[in-house]
């Protein structure tokens, strides 16, 4: 992470653009830290290659979306080194996918054990395009194990709404945080600018 990246999180401190639109490095790095922590809590140790087991939680990089648009089967293969390919996916509790599209961050949560796909968007869009894409990914990953009728998409929007035009990235991260902790989404406190949350994310990253 560079000071340019931190400038997107704390523009005043790091001489960034005043809009404070988080970039992909901040989003991906923070989610990786959260997921690694959650995995350690569950006693999970990642082993590369054969012999590795399925993680309880995983977050893909935000480039998932562009990759999925161009090459679905190739993107499904991202699951393989993570021990999430094929029926292994069904042993995982939670797969998080941050998506940045049309200059807006949102979060997909796949809960394989519940056969459920959820969408968290602080501008309260329907996200149909993204949940359908997530379902397509699940189909590509599960292959023969995919049973269409088992899977549902939650259309009930539980994310808190952002109070300005800048905080979607922070809401994406906080929604991931409460999901990983198993808390309710109304735990996210809304302020204009989300200054406390931004500092907290920065502290975690450092």
């Amino acid at each position: 992470l560079t000071s340019h990246d931190f400038g997107t999180l704390l523009p005043h401190m790091f001489n960034g653009d005043a809009k404070g639109w988080l970039n992909d490095n901040i989003i991906n790095e923070y989610l990786e830290i959260l997921v690694n922590y959650a995995q350690r809590q569950e006693g999970y140790v990642y082993v590369r290659g054969k012999g590795g087991s399925t993680p309880p939680v995983h977050a893909f990089k935000s480039q998932w979306y562009t990759s999925m648009k161009g090459n679905p089967s190739g993107t499904a293969r991202w699951a393989r080194p993570m021990h999430l390919f094929g029926e292994k996916l069904l042993a995982c509790n939670l797969v998080l996918i941050p998506i940045c599209h049309h200059s807006h961050w949102r979060l997909i949560a796949i809960k394989p054990k519940d056969r459920l796909i959820e969408y968290y968007d602080s501008l309260h869009g329907s996200g149909r395009e993204y949940t359908q894409l997530a379902k397509e990914w699940v189909r590509e990953v599960l292959q023969k194990q995919f049973v269409e009728e088992e899977w549902s998409i939650c259309t009930n929007q539980r994310s808190k709404a952002q109070a300005n035009a800048s905080d979607c990235g922070i809401f994406t991260l906080l929604n991931a945080l409460v999901l990983l902790r198993g808390e309710e989404h109304n735990r996210v406190l809304v302020t204009n600018g989300m200054d406390d949350a931004r500092l907290r994310v920065a502290a975690t990253l450092l």
Binding site: N23, S62, Q63, T66, G74, S103, C168
Partner: peptide
């Protein structure tokens, strides 16, 4: 919002 461009690298 995100820095643009994400070339996928495949082997």
């Amino acid at each position: 919002m995100s820095d643009n461009g994400s070339p996928m690298q495949q082997k």
